[in-house]
Design a protein around this nucleic acid. Structure first.
Length: 803
RNA sequence: GCGAGGGUGGCGGAAUUUGGUAGACGCACUGGAUUUAGGUUCCAGCGGUUUCGACCGUGGGGGUUCGAGUCCCCCCCCUCGUACCA
């Protein structure tokens, strides 16, 4: 009987499911291992081959850890709120929950067809009321802690989607979903104070075993910078302009100031002569989208307000301008401009003929701003100092004079947390008629989504929920009337804490039981796409830290180790896309080659983290490997297992032990491509050797089982075992049995390979050198030359240096 | 611009941790055997040049070393992220 995945794969999938083979045990003495995949958004398109890449890697590690005695938590669920289901509802009238259910069922079917070892009893779905009840509960905790507030903020309003988008969902001025234009519009929004955690989100990155690139991107996003706040008095108005600068050392070079057009002082300080020009500039800036403001950045624009400020270090009067190159949302919305040492200021000063003064030696400020280190010049008390010392000294001086202080600033802004959509978590908030904002009592949660007639956004900025008066209007226990919050939460909300719900998914009393959290957390390995490097991971870390502060979780950070799987490109080397016609559907590959072949192929393509192109021929290759491996275990004519109790050869024993060592090390490091290569080499040897020895075949079945689990189970049972292979202890290798008695030494003459000699592994130097010189080709190259030096590298090579 | 990662056969990739026979493993290809047949299996070959002794070869150039894909310096190219953050 030939290897036939169509027969064996469904059989074992059914076995695992009915026997709950992969159930994670909550109360257990074994060490735990929490292996998490980023849960998918169940789209209508179904799974693409990119999904199983990360899932297979985490599955291999999960199965390996189980075999090594760990109690493994390996769950899967659905991030199912979100725009596509709602868009579909708008166009077809189908309730998003129906679409969602259909897509989830399809995703689950596809994922199960790949034989992943998930504990399906822990499946979660962010759109279940039993789940989002606790998402709402976490929101109430945030609110009570003062971390959620309503603000009238200029937001990214997308007229086409009829909603507001987060900065992150806007790419080059267009909506991430759909690519529609986005404009700025002030609106009443829920915000989360992630900025309050900026410092810890930055600092705690240090202790995480995450890719450096991801940590770096988070650091950039948080954008912590150290500097000083400095007060500049105004000549005409009795109010200071406070600026933030990272270069207080260049204060003597500040030759003008710039306010953002939205800065509150603009109207106060503008002189009558300049009023018209300023007003028209401010108006213009307000109308521009963020895109336009940055697009036109190449050419700096601005207007003089007519006002002057006084440079606190030297008492000089400097003009105050407004310009949209200064952002109202960063720092204090005002800067001191040092054109000699800041390129943006230099460009502005050059355009508007403002003076440029050199205060740090080392460049030529008539050509460009000099931002490097150097000795301070023209700078009074700090002249002669280097930049770091000058910063420290001037900051201390400012503090002493009461003119400023050291300060830290962040690029990170508060998180815009509301959406004007139907298909999201309702806020547990009621606005009383007198304006008071009330939390829905925790016992009343969840606030469930009502049925609606139409899903279309009202277009006024309110969600479709606003149209359901019987849902919106409530009477409070004290008799007051109130309106429910009609915004819903963004898709990030549900994914911010799902890893905690897996720990205790059926708990109706609490989001999770504390003792279970203490056992299972933190996540030991988190695998997912690099597209979540900043947002999802930053938001989840933020919530986790809040929950930590409230005592609901016991670790500062949720995800100990993070790995990003690389994207799988189409066969043409392009990103897979329906429009290019290069999308590969896992269902088709399973149909043709089997799930084990697909798993194996995706791992064999290259390093997990790398971006790599799909080649269906390559699946053919690993399928041939499985065919060959099958014939190692089974006589494919008779279907009988070809196993006996004969003693294997030393060579085969050595090969097995080396393979056990290599596969184990490679799985731990997630070098799954080379682990598979090692098993291919073993199969090539076993095929040649025709080994039937049980002492070889059984450990080999265990090695391959995490990669090709259906295959592993099938040959294991054919070897005569009744129980699943999944909990059989991982085979051990003996170091002594990994050592070859004889090794091939390379012999070089002057660094060039001239021969090879077979020598005992523990050969002494003299014997090795003699053998090397005896090699005919080596001897030929030594002839007539003087031997200058002999280099002997044990177990590797010999180099003879002659002249 | 800035930041991160990367350039190795016809292709995907090994070896980069620790400087030590570059090209493991697989695909594609070539030849042979078995077979009624093969999108089967098995065996062999497979970086380039070659006077068959050797020479050249890991993006390019230099350096360190007995020895460099690996370490150091300069340059080129590609991918991803980011974009006036004071």
């Amino acid at each position: 009987m030939k290897y036939d995945p169509k027969q064996i794969e469904p059989k074992w999938q059914h076995y695992w499911q009915t026997n709950k083979t992969f159930a994670a045990v909550d109360d257990d003495a074994r060490p735990k291992f929490y292996c998490l995949d980023m849960f998918p958004y169940p789209s209508g398109q179904g799974l693409h081959v990119g999904h199983p890449e990360g899932y297979t890697a985490s599955d291999i590690l999960s199965r390996y850890k189980r075999a090594n005695g760990f109690n493994v938590l390996h769950p899967m669920g659905w991030d199912a709120f979100g725009l596509p289901a709602e868009q579909y509802a708008i166009s077809t009238g189908t309730h998003p929950s129906i679409t969602t259910q259909r897509n989830v069922d399809n995703f689950r079917r596809q994922i199960q067809a790949l034989g992943f070892s998930y504990d399906w009893d822990r499946e979660v779905n962010t759109t279940d009321a039993g789940y989002y009840r606790w998402t709402q509960w976490i929101f109430t905790q945030l609110y009570k802690k003062g971390l959620a507030y309503i603000a009238e903020v200029p937001v990214n309003w997308c007229p086409a989607l009829g909603t507001v988008l987060a900065n992150e969902e806007v790419i080059d001025g267009l909506s991430e979903r759909g690519g529609h234009p986005v404009v700025r519009k002030p609106m009443r929004q829920w915000m989360l104070k992630i900025t309050e955690y900026a410092d810890r989100l930055e600092t705690d990155l240090d202790e995480l075993d995450w890719p450096e690139g991801v940590k770096h991107m988070q650091r950039n996003w948080i954008g912590r910078s150290f500097g000083a706040e400095v007060d500049f008095k105004l000549s005409a108005v009795d109010k200071p302009i406070t600026v933030f600068t990272t270069r207080p050392d260049t204060l003597f070079g500040a030759t003008y100031m710039v306010l953002a057009p939205e800065h509150p002082l603009v109207s106060e300080i503008t002189t009558p002569a300049q009023a018209d020009a300023v007003a028209s500039y401010v108006n213009q800036a307000a109308l521009k989208s963020d895109l336009e403001r940055t697009e036109l950045a190449k050419d700096k624009t601005g207007v003089f307000t007519g006002a002057y400020a006084i440079n606190p270090v030297n008492g000089e009067e400097i003009p105050v301008w407004i310009s949209d190159y200064v952002l109202s949302t960063y720092g204090t919305g005002a800067i001191m401009a040092v054109p000699g040492h800041d390129q943006r200021d230099w460009e502005f000063a050059t355009k508007f003929n403002l003076p440029i003064i050199e205060v740090v030696a080392g460049g030529d400020v008539t050509v460009e701003a000099y931002t490097g280190d150097g000795a301070l010049v023209n700078s009074g008390m700090i002249s002669g100092l280097a930049v770091p010392e000058a910063k420290a000294k001037i900051t201390a001086w400012l503090e002493g004079e009461g003119l400023g202080k050291g300060a830290v600033n962040y690029r990170l802004r508060d998180w815009l947390f509301s959406r004007q959509r139907y298909w999201g978590e309702p806020f547990p908030i009621i606005h009383a008629e007198d304006g008071e904002i009330l939390l829905v009592d925790e016992a009343e949660l969840p606030v469930t989504l009502p049925e609606v007639e139409a899903y279309k956004p009202s277009g006024t900025g309110e969600s479709p929920l606003a149209t359901i008066s019987e849902w919106v209007n409530v009477t409070l226990p004290d008799g007051r009337r109130g309106r429910r919050e009609t915004n819903t939460m963004p898709q990030w909300a549900g994914s911010c804490w799902y890893y905690l719900r897996y720990i205790d998914p059926h708990n109706t009393e609490q989001a999770w039981a504390p003792e279970k959290e203490r056992y299972w957390m933190p996540v030991d390995l988190y695998i997912g796409g690099a597209e979540h490097a900043v947002l999802h991971l930053l938001y989840a870390r933020f919530w986790h830290k809040v929950l930590f502060d409230l005592g609901f979780v016991h670790t500062k950070e949720p995800f100990k180790r993070l790995v990003n799987q690389g994207m799988i490109l189409g066969e043409d080397g392009q990103k897979m896309a329906k429009s290019r016609g290069n999308v590969v559907n896992p269902d088709d590959i399973i149909e043709q080659f089997g799930a084990d072949a697909l798993r194996l192929y995706e791992m064999f393509m290259g390093p997990l983290e790398a971006v790599k192109p799909w080649q269906t021929k390559g699946v053919d290759g690993v399928r041939r490997f499985l065919d060959r491996a099958w014939r190692v275990f089974v006589d494919d004519k008779t279907g009988e297992p070809r196993v006996d109790d004969s003693a294997p050869s030393d060579e085969v024993t050595r090969a097995l032990h080396k393979t056990i060592r290599k596969v184990g090390e490679d799985i731990e490091a997630l070098r799954l491509n080379t682990a598979i290569a090692a098993m291919m080499e073993l199969v090539n040897l076993l095929t040649k050797d025709k080994t039937c020895s049980r002492t070889i075949l059984e450990p080999f079945a265990q090695l391959i089982a995490p990669f090709a689990p259906h295959f592993g189970e099938e040959v294991w049972s054919r070897l005569g075992h009744d129980a699943t292979i999944s909990h059989v202890p991982w085979p051990r290798y003996e170091e002594a049995l990994c050592k070859d008695p004889m090794l091939t030494y390379a012999v070089q003459v002057n660094g060039k390979l001239r021969g090879q000699v077979e020598l005992a592994a523990d050969v002494d130097e003299a014997t090795a050198l003699a053998a090397a010189k005896a090699d005919p080709n080596v001897a030929r190259h030594l002839e007539g030359k003087t031997l200058r030096r002999e280099i002997f590298v044990p177990k590797r090579m010999i180099n003879l240096v002659v002249s």
